[in-house]
C-alpha cells in the first residue's frame, strides 16, 4: 500500500491551517506573530534539509556516514541540553556527551543487534530514525534532570551544606536532589507510557500505519521504541548526573557558581 503523497499546492493549503491559531492568538492579545511564523519557517527549513539529507543517506547507506550523522546529532543534543538546563557547556560538555551517547547507543544497539536485526545491521533506514527518536526523548529527560538537580542544590544551598557538615560525602549530600531530579526526568515518559493508545496514537505508530505497515507491526515497533526510550532516558539521566558531579563542585565539595549560565 503506497502512502498518499501531498502535492505542492496541497502543501500551501496545509500552511493555511496555521492562520486560524494565529488569528486566535492575535485576538487574545498575544503578540506572538513573529515567533509563530519564525517557528513554522524554521521547522519547515530544518525538516526540508533533513529530508534531503536522509534521502541521500538512505541511498548511500555507508556505515561511516551513518556514524558521522549520529555523532553530529549527539553533539547538537549535548549543546541543546546544556543550554536549556541553564548550564555552561564548558563544564559539562564531556559528561553530558558521554552520558547521552552511552544511554542512546545502548538502546539502539540492543534494538538493532538483538531485536530487529536489519540487513545490513547499520541500515540507515533503521539506524538513523530510531537513534533520532531515542535521542530526542533523552534530550528532554536530561534537560529536566540536570536543570532540576542543579537548581535544587543552588536553591537549597544551606540544606546541602548542612548535609556536608554533618559528615555526608558529596554523593551522599546530593542524594535527595538526585532522587528528585531523576523522578522529574522520567515521570513524563512513565505517564505517557501509561496512557499510550488511550489518549493518543503515538507518532511512530501513526507514521508506520500511514506508511503502509500492518497495525500489529506498528504496535510492536511502538512498544520497542517506548521501552528503549525509557531505558535510554534513565541510563543517560543517571550517568549524566553522576558524571557531572566531578565538574560542578570544587575540591571542597561546594557547588561552583560559575557553572550556571547567566540568566
Amino acid at each position: 500500500m503506497e502512502t498518499v503523497d501531498i502535492s505542492q499546492p496541497k502543501m500551501v493549503l496545509l500552511y493555511g491551517i496555521a492562520i486560524l491559531p494565529w488569528l486566535l492568538l492575535w485576538a487574545g492579545g498575544l503578540r506572538l506573530s513573529r515567533d509563530l511564523w519564525l517557528s513554522i519557517a524554521r521547522m519547515s527549513a530544518q525538516l526540508a534539509l533533513v529530508g534531503l539529507y536522509l534521502k541521500y543517506l538512505f541511498a548511500i547507506n555507508d556505515p561511516r556516514l551513518n556514524v558521522l550523522w549520529i555523532a553530529v546529532m549527539l553533539i547538537v543534543a549535548d549543546f541543546t541540553i546544556l543550554r536549556r538546563a541553564g548550564l555552561r557547556v564548558r563544564y559539562f560538555f564531556l559528561s553530558t556527551l558521554v552520558a547521552v551517547a552511552a544511554g542512546t547507543l545502548f538502546s539502539v544497539a540492543y534494538l538493532l543487534l538483538l531485536v530487529i536485526r536489519p540487513e545490513p545491521l547499520y541500515d540507515a533506514r533503521y539506524l538513523v530514525p530510531l537513534t533520532g527518536m531515542i535521542l530526542g526523548n533523552c534530550l528532554q529527560g536530561n534537560v529536566i534532570g540536570l536543570e532540576r538537580f542543579y537548581s535544587s542544590i543552588r536553591k537549597n544551598e544551606n540544606e546541602y551544606l548542612t548535609y556536608l557538615l554533618l559528615g555526608a560525602s558529596r554523593r551522599e549530600a546530593v542524594r535527595p536532589y538526585f532522587r528528585q531530579a531523576l523522578s522529574a526526568s522520567v515521570s513524563p515518559t512513565l505517564a505517557s507510557m501509561a496512557t499510550l493508545g488511550l489518549v493518543s496514537l503515538p507518532g511512530m505508530m501513526t507514521g508506520q500505519i500511514l506508511g503502509g505497515s500492518e497495525p500489529w507491526v506498528a504496535v510492536k515497533y511502538q512498544v520497542a521504541i517506548m521501552l528503549c526510550i525509557f531505558a535510554s532516558m534513565t541510563l543517560a539521566g543517571v550517568l549524566n548526573l553522576a558524571l557531572s558531579l566531578r565538574f560542578a563542585f570544587n575540591e571542597l565539595d561546594v557547588l561552583r557558581g560559575e557553572v550556571f549560565r547567566p540568566s
Binding site: E159, T162, Y163, L166, G167, A168, S169, E172
Partner: peptide, 17 residues
C-alpha cells in the same frame, strides 16, 4: 533536613562517616 525531629537527630548516622 528531615521530616521529624527524631529523623533530624539521626540523619548524620545514615551517612557512611
Amino acid at each position: 533536613g528531615a521530616d521529624t525531629v527524631r529523623d533530624a537527630l539521626l540523619l548524620p548516622f545514615g551517612f557512611t562517616a
